[in-house]
Design a protein around this nucleic acid. Structure first.
Length: 788
RNA sequence: GGGCUCGUAGCCUAGCGGUUAUGGCAUCACCCUUACAAGGUGGGGGUCGUCGGUUCGAAUCCGACCGGGCCCACCA
């Protein structure tokens, strides 16, 4: 049933974004999921909550831009293509690699798009295209052209420079590897105790190392400042064994007293600590490892040997000179390993482009404080990250399926030639059309590098708002209303977006950011494919439908405050809450008013009470929804429907609505008032729940009021006051029910006498009719029920 | 190792200085009452992680510790 509703909305482009509309725009920078992996329950939940936001904002009169993006760039695509077609990209060449990626993407049915559809999400559009609101792909020429044009702009602003950088290098696959692809393994190794000599005294200093072949790159020897054993070496010059080079000895806190011999040699590019050390001490890094995993001329007679061979050779050499004291096996030497090849990672230097960020840290702090972050606690993640930024942003990678650096270099003078803005170019396979601006040269080398994935994705808000492509629209709506995203990518996606868009436009790109936590398993641990403890949204949708799932997303808790625990039972239980709404609606739909009847209304006190209570819940809900809090309002609404509306109000006015009781007769106007209040209250409640449960509320609304709920506005308060206290009426009804129960009476049985609080006096007739009370007396606060 | 965050009944959650701690799920008992048994009504269940401190008063503020979770880094 609900799928038919969704289908209908999709067919009729019900939520299409009209960029020429006069309504205020509310724009959502929806995170583009990777399309080649199925939707995870975590994705499904967060997109559902985004849909709550979009639907609520539409009810508030906004023209909501809620586009779906599909991320089709980068490593995940490359890896699955390699796996699927059983090819090795480093062997087959770039042309073919890109073709395989394209093939993979063509063959991938957009399963995730279908899942979002079945969740009842109302994106602005369901068709792919380049108009504002359309489904967009991050690998489309349109998107990539914008990415390239931002590079050109930033380059021309002098914010991008090229510099040498140390990269993770996989010598086996011949490629750079990103940090996330590195795993650490405990590999057995050896501590080699080798002998350094003090230059002036000839004193022997024993240093332990696991990488003796890197002695040639040793730039300094350090010990801990509080280590008494070595203090006499401060400032002395040591001679390295085998290579006989001079290095300085200094105290430095990164040497630990208990490790090895307590004194260590710092080599360029043994590991990342070394790299940082060299930068800090401003030492010249001497690179000894080639891309193919062999040592170079810096390694003296080890030149040309593979790392392993070099290590064996130098050990022999040291032994011969009696400079190797002993080799101690270490069982747990944590070694960085390439996840894909199993090869030990080496660190080598390569030229990369950098985007300046260090000089904008203060500006970024200001921007971080300007964005409204929900929940505010998450702002700290961003601030902490800004504080810890210590190098400019390296934006280039040596990969295949990503946006290319739009640059060529003159073969004659080496100067850079940038592509024209607005065109998507692939310099690695295309010729530069033109002459060198500097020397008039006509031959060029195309840049072979591609951009870091965050360089692409950090323009998503610009892209969806028509940057560079729909200038008039962008000019008017350049601040994006909302960035919804996970907390784990605050330091990447959120930070880089704020940074890059500030550098491009000088503005704070987002008004609000909603930072969500994660969906975890029932025992609070992370869902992971390898453990097989995940919950598949397809199963959930198949078993229960989107209604219970969406309700669960709303009532479970505040996803911006902490993790959700997920299980089938929890979702199933959430679905039960909807049953009440359905039954209540069935009851209310039994009563209708003709035009004449609705003009003849005499509100009784209990009706006023219901209207007053509905007013309260409308304002509370609005307050919550404004803060992207759907949990507290939805729980309140559901409780309200059950406790106040169904159990108390409906039970009380039931007889008045039927008005066919032989003993108690109500006037026509009084009866009409009950029906009107029933219908109007339900109307409001359905509207409040529409963002959470669009299909069910749509269905009821259509049947009951014959109107399209998606075109309705958020309900207004009526400002009617009542003297009845909610607490007292609920307590009184409860007391009667309990007395009957305690006395084994049926609910129809008679109560002889009841004493009720004074405020309930206006409801006397209805209370008597409802509970079958013979005599009722009103006193200040008391409730006494006499059954017999 | 560094940082962030969270510990409230079997499970989840509200409260975040002031009567007897909120609600849901689960559990137990009773009930086909003309919207509703995929339901209704009622009940039981808590030393608010532990230990100190501030205060007339602490779940709430401060400190230490214990235990989850996440992010980052990973050591000659």
């Amino acid at each position: 049933m609900e799928l038919a509703v969704y289908e209908d909305w999709k067919e009729n482009n019900s939520f299409i974004f009209d960029k020429d509309s006069k309504l205020p725009v509310y724009s959502i920078d929806t995170p583009p999921p990777y399309i080649n992996s199925p939707v995870h329950i975590g994705h499904a939940s967060t997109y559902v909550i985004m849909d709550f936001i979009a639907r609520y904002k539409r009810m508030m009169g906004y023209n909501v831009l809620f586009p779906l993006g599909l991320d089709q760039n980068g490593l995940p695509i490359e890896i699955s293509a390699e796996k699927k077609y059983k090819v090795d990209f480093t062997r087959i060449g770039r042309e073919k690699a890109v073709e395989y990626c394209r093939q993979l993407l063509n063959e991938t049915t957009s399963e995730s798009v279908d899942s979002f559809f079945k969740c009842g999400i109302g994106f602005s559009s369901w068709k792919e295209g380049t108009q504002i609101g359309d489904i967009y792909q991050t690998d489309s020429p349109d998107y990539r052209a914008v990415t390239q044009s931002t590079f050109i702009d930033l380059y021309n602003k002098g914010l991008i420079y090229e510099a040498d950088k140390v990269v993770n290098w996989d010598p086996k696959l011949q490629t750079t590897v990103s940090d996330s692809e590195i795993i650490y393994e405990d590999r057995p190794g050896f501590f080699h105790d080798i002998v350094f000599k003090v230059k002036d005294s000839g004193e022997e200093v024993i240093i332990g190392t696991t990488r003796p072949e890197l002695i040639c790159t040793c730039g300094m020897v350090i010990y801990n400042p509080s280590d008494k054993r070595y203090q006499h070496l401060e400032g002395k010059t040591l001679i390295t064994p085998y290579f006989n080079k001079e290095v300085l000895c200094k105290a430095h806190p990164s040497a630990e007293i208990d490790k090895g011999t307590g004194i260590m040699m710092m080599c360029s590019y043994g590991d990342l600590t070394d790299i940082r050390f060299f930068m800090e001490q401003k030492l010249d890094a001497r690179v000894a490892i080639n891309k193919n995993g062999t040592l170079n001329e810096n390694a003296g007679d080890l030149n040309g040997l593979k790392i392993k061979e070099a290590r064996e050779k130098i050990i022999e050499g040291l032994k011969a000179q009696n400079l190797l004291k002993k080799m101690t096996p270490t069982q747990a030497h944590r070694t960085p390993i390439s996840e894909r090849s199993g090869a030990a990672i080496e660190f080598i230097q390569m030229k990369e482009y950098y985007l300046k960020q260090l000089e904008f840290k203060d500006e970024m702090r200001r921007i971080a404080s300007e964005v409204n972050i929900y929940a505010p606690e998450s702002r700290q993640i961003l601030l902490d990250w800004i504080d810890s930024v210590s190098i400019d942003w390296p934006i280039t990678r040596r990969r295949f399926y990503a946006t290319e650096v739009p640059a060529w270099y003159c073969k004659k003078c080496g100067s850079i030639q940038l592509a024209k803005k607005g065109e998507y170019v692939q310099p690695w396979r295309e010729e530069y059309k033109g002459k060198c601006e500097k020397c008039g040269g006509e031959e060029f080398r195309g840049d072979e590098r591609v951009f870091d994935t965050w360089f692409d994705s950090s323009i998503s808000p610009l892209y969806i708002l028509g940057y560079e492509r729909h200038p008039e629209f962008f000019k008017e709506h350049e601040q994006c209303s909302l960035r919804p995203q996970g907390k784990e990518i605050v330091r990447t996606w959120l930070y880089y977006t704020l940074l890059k868009d500030y550098l491009l436009t000088g503005k704070t790109i987002f008004k609000d950011a909603w930072i969500h936590h994660h969906i975890v398993t029932e025992d609070g641990t992370k869902m992971s494919k390898s453990k097989g403890n995940g919950i598949d949204p397809h199963n959930v949708l198949e078993k229960f439908g989107s209604g219970p799932f969406r309700t669960w997303c709303a009532v479970e808790g505040n996803l911006d405050k902490g993790d959700f625990r997920c299980s089938y039972t929890r979702i199933e239980n959430a679905g039960k809450l909807l049953e009440k709404l359905w039954n209540v609606s069935k009851f209310v739909s039994m009563f209708e008013l003709t035009k004449e009847q609705s003009n003849e209304i005499e509100l009784m006190e209990i009706d006023k009470w219901m209207i007053q209570e509905t007013d309260k819940i409308i304002s509370e809900t609005k307050k919550g929804y404004e803060k992207y809090d759907f949990h507290n309002p939805s729980v309140r609404i559901i409780n309200f429907i059950r406790d106040e509306f169904a159990s108390n109000y409906i039970e009380t006015v039931k007889r008045r609505a039927y008005n066919n009781d032989a003993l108690i007769k109500f006037s026509e106007a009084q009866r009409n008032a009950a029906v009107k209040t029933l219908r109007e209250t339900l109307d409001s409640l359905l509207l409040l729940l529409y963002p959470i449960n669009p299909a069910m509320t749509h269905f009821i609304y259509k049947n009951l009021f014959n109107k399209e709920i998606k075109e309705e506005k958020f309900p207004n308060t009526k400002n009617i006051k009542s003297t009845i206290s909610s607490e007292e009426i609920q307590l009184f009804n409860s007391a009667v029910w309990k007395t009957k129960k305690d006395n084994n009476l049926s609910l129809k049985d008679e109560i002889k006498k009841a004493i009720a609080p004074k405020s309930l006096e206006p409801v006397e007739i209805e209370l008597r009719a409802m509970h079958n009370i013979k005599e009722i007396e009103f006193k200040e606060k008391e409730i006494i029920i006499n059954a017999k």
